[in-house]
Structure formats: C-alpha cells, structure tokens
Amino acid sequence: MRDAIRERFIELFSTEPYFFRSPGRVNLIGEHTDYNNGFVLPAAINKEILFAVGPNDTDTIRLFSYDMQEQATFDLARIAPSDISWANYLLGVVAQFQQSDYQVKGFDLVFGGNVPIGAGLSSSAAVECGLAFALNHIFGFGLDRFALAKVAQKAEHEFAGVRCGIMDQFASLFGKKEHVIKLDCRSLDYSYYHFEMSNNCIVLCDTQVKHSLASSEYNTRRQECETGVALLHKHYPDVSSLRDVTVDMLEKHRQEFDPVVFKRCIYIVQENSRVEAACRALEQEDLVLFGEKMFESHEGLQHNYEVSCTELDFLVDQAKEHTAVLGARMMGGGFGGCTINIVRIAAIDEFITAMSKAYEQQFKIPLKTYIAEIVDGSSMLS
C-alpha cells in the first residue's frame, strides 16, 4: 500500500512526499473507566494509516483519500467542518493548530490504510494523530507527543462531534513495540508493561453488528456513574469520581442506591482494580492470570454494566471452550464491535476456523477476524 500511495501522490502532485504512519489501537482491559478518571491498558497495533505529505507553497490544502478514492481542496483561510466526513478528521487537526497560533502552510496529502472502519480500533484517532505528527514535523512546530494527542482529541471533539477521552490518541502516539500502556485517565501519568508476544497473539473477532442502543446507553451509563458519585460525595466529601471509591464504601451505603446505579458503580470500581491486578500479572510474566482478569472484565460488562450483547457474549463463551485462549472480553463501548482474545500462536488457525464456523452457524453472519501485533506509535518512515 505504501508504494501505491506514493505513486498516487506523485501522479497527483508531481513531487516526492514525506512518509508517516499512525497506528490504530486495542484496549486490553479497563473499559468505560476512562470517563470515570480510572485506568486503561491500551496498545498500538499493526493496523495503521499511511500518510504521504508535502508542502505545496500555496494557501490551500489538497487531500486525497486512497481508501475512498476521493479528492478535496480547502482554503487555509476558511477551515471549517465540511460535508465530506472523512475530511473532517484532517480539517479538525489543521484548525487546532491554527487556533493555537501555529502557522499551517499549504500542503498536499494522500492517506490510506488497513485500520478496519467501525471495528473499534480507533481509525479516526489514527488519522488525526498521523496528520498532527506529520504537520508538526514538516512545519517545525516543536510539539511533544502529549501536545499532539491533545490536538488530535480536540479535532475529534470539534470537527467529528465525538466527545472522546484521550485514550485512543494517547495509544496511537505513545505506543511501544511489545508493550501495553497503563494510562491514569485522571493524572495522565503512564507506564509501560512488557507484553509477551513470542508465544501469544492478539486476535480480534468482529461481530459486524452495532445495535442502535450504543450511543444512548453510553450517555445513560455516564449519568448513572455521576449519580453514584453524587450520593457518595455526601458521605465522603473527597469523592469526586468513582476512582476515589472502594467496594467497602459502596457496600456500606448499598441500601441508599438505586440497584441499577449500584451495579454500574461496582463494575467501575472493580474494573479499576482488575487493571492494576492485570499489570501485576504482567510484571510476573503471568499471562494466564492476565487472561483471567479479561474474562472477569467481560462478566462485569455483561452483568453489572450491561453493555454487552448476545453476539459478544456468544464469542466470549466460545473462546472459553478453547484451551489455547488465555483470555477474552468485549472491547469498546459495547452493543457490538469486537472481542479481544489472547491466543497461543500455535493454535491461531484452529481458533479462527472454529470461531468463524460457530458464529456463522449461530447468527448467519460471517465473522471477521484480525490478528494484531503490538507496535510503536506514530512515526516518520524513511
């Protein structure tokens, strides 16, 4: 694909480009904890977006989506959200630089990649981070990776209309080969943990469904968590988020909670503890224990946070039947999308064959699978 993107850039713009790459991400454990100031454990993966970029000495930006085979041109003096949805992720990045008084000059861009759209691997963050990284290099803005992650996050907020946390952009920029990142979503402190990939692999199973409940239920979950925090704050003034809460606190005041709100809160508190336990397991090179925490996470998401669905539960139940699977859970907001599975490399083909057959028999939908390696974050290519 890199050769094809380069050739198209030269064909369109008659010059040799700079080349950059920006990866998608998975989240091994720590779901719905980000907006509760908790912990997450993402990693950058080898599904990535490639960028051929070059300055053009004009006051316009010329964009070409290799995947969509569409072209668009915009005046730098009038950057605003567009009717072209794929362009908005790029325009949002340009706008953020402009709002911070960094002078973006005219440039040409051809981009494309193999991050599956709609599979929960953060293709949008990969696009935003990749362009931010590229423009920062080409125009010499001198921003560090954290500042670029904030640029990309704000681009998503303001031009794509998605009020995302910073995990996706952070993982795309800060990824490290064969390491996961423990990110504290309150302080934004982070640390790396080695993830043994010589005998194991990450396999994603894509349900190819997205139930209509997803967006409305997401907002409801946030509200339910805030309700729980408000109740506990009356008893514990230092409690400002579920990050500050323990299981003992919840149990002590259980009778005051709406039962549904209690379930939401106890899931978040337990999930934060699971992330920390999973990190200790990685320190001990114990992927079996790590996998157990993944299975526990799914049970919490299924029964207490109630954001799973029949298709996701089926895939996790099937994964439990395979001795080569160390752990599995739903990944992302829920109500569809992917499960993430840690599978022994020697059994990958057998696992994918069995899962695909079972899923299609059950739901009459073909199962898409992706094998993911953990890679470095956004970078310039030679």
Rank of each mutant, 00 (worst) to 15 (best):
K357N: 14
V209E: 08
V247E: 02
N27M: 03
V151N: 02
Q96R: 14
Q284V: 10
E296M: 03
T58H: 05
P366V: 12
E48S: 04
R186K: 13
S82T: 07
W86K: 12
E321M: 07
P259K: 10
F9I: 12
L232E: 15
D248T: 14
H298W: 03
Q208W: 05
G54P: 05
G165W: 01
F97S: 03
S382M: 11
A125V: 04
A347D: 09
C185G: 11
V104G: 00
S241W: 14
D244P: 07
S65V: 03
K177V: 09
I268M: 01
F9T: 13
Q362W: 04
D286P: 08
G24Q: 01
C338E: 06
I166L: 13
V325P: 07
I79G: 04
L188C: 00
I61W: 01
F51D: 02
Y102T: 08
E360K: 11
N272G: 07
Y18C: 14
Q255H: 15
R186G: 02
M1R: 09
E16C: 01
E299F: 00
G300M: 10
M1T: 10
A125Q: 09
H137L: 10
D206P: 05
K154G: 11
E128C: 15
L109D: 01
I84W: 00
F51G: 08
G113R: 00
D59Y: 05
L50C: 13
N304M: 08
C225P: 01
Q255D: 14
L91A: 04
Y305A: 01
L282Y: 06
Y89C: 10
F257W: 13
L121M: 08
E7N: 13
E7Q: 15
Q96T: 12
N27F: 07
V245I: 09
D57G: 06
S216Q: 07
Q98R: 03
K154I: 11
S65L: 07
I365E: 15
R186Q: 09
R163F: 06
K177I: 04
F19S: 11
L109P: 12
G24V: 14
L143Q: 09
P81E: 10
T73K: 09
S215W: 04
S297W: 01
L287A: 07
E271C: 01
M167D: 02
P81T: 11
F363N: 07
S215N: 11
A171V: 05
F13I: 02
G112V: 05
D184M: 07
I117F: 15
N36M: 10
D244R: 11
I348Y: 03
G140F: 11
A319S: 15
G228E: 06
G337P: 07
Y370S: 08
A147C: 06
E7A: 14
A346D: 12
F133G: 14
I202N: 00
